[in-house]
């Protein structure tokens, strides 16, 4: 009897362990899509005019997929904002794509207030299925680095420190500088 009672009380917690919650992806760097032509996209940011990949021709682009309610994504956005402020003069572009529309449609309305509250300096748009599919979106946060030639240079899954993005951007900026010399 006691054992049955014990199992009844303890089991729900053990069953709850693999509950279908959305956690940030485990950090990983992927070269799987490197060298592939970055799929063209055109998105309408929550504030400002529409942006498309061709607007950034000749410049490195970081495409960041995030969810508005995901704390590691917000921390990454803060890192990317800093990076953008430092390198936007050198032509580095960052575009935020909120995947709330795909994973939690009820939070889509929170993307714009978040962008305003965090004073995100780069364009932030709501994801459409096409862009997520084209960029092989599998979870958040995901950052796709596109080089000056419009080719995918790296894909970062999960949270990454600002230094990691800084290194990736420096790598893309370097060849042009050496060519100029």
């Amino acid at each position: 009897m006691k054992i049955r009672l014990l199992l009844t009380l303890v089991c729900p917690f053990l069953i709850a362990l693999p509950s279908p919650t959305e956690a940030a992806l485990s950090p990983a760097e992927s070269d799987e899509f490197n060298g592939q032509e970055a799929p063209a996209f055109s998105v309408t940011p929550v504030k400002g005019d529409a942006v498309s990949l061709k607007d950034f021709k000749g410049h490195p682009v970081l495409l960041n997929f995030f969810a508005s309610w995901c704390p590691p994504c917000r921390e990454e956005i803060s890192n990317l904002s800093q990076l953008y402020k430092q390198h936007s003069k050198e032509g580095v572009a960052v575009v935020g794509i909120a995947v709330d529309s795909l994973v939690t449609p009820e939070t889509v309305g929170e993307v714009k207030p978040l962008a305003e509250r965090l004073s995100i300096p780069f364009p932030v748009a709501i994801a459409e299925e096409k862009i997520a599919k084209d960029y092989h979106f599998k979870g958040f946060p995901t950052t796709v680095v596109i080089d000056r030639d419009g080719k995918i240079a790296k894909t970062f899954y999960g949270y990454h420190d600002g230094k990691v993005f800084e290194a990736a951007v420096q790598k893309l900026l370097r060849p042009a500088e050496s060519k100029a010399q």
Binding site: A16, S19, T21, C70, P71, V103
Partner: peptide, 9 residues
């Protein structure tokens, strides 16, 4: 009450 978030759980 957003159970999709692991932080909420």
């Amino acid at each position: 009450f957003r159970w999709h978030s692991s932080i909420t759980v």
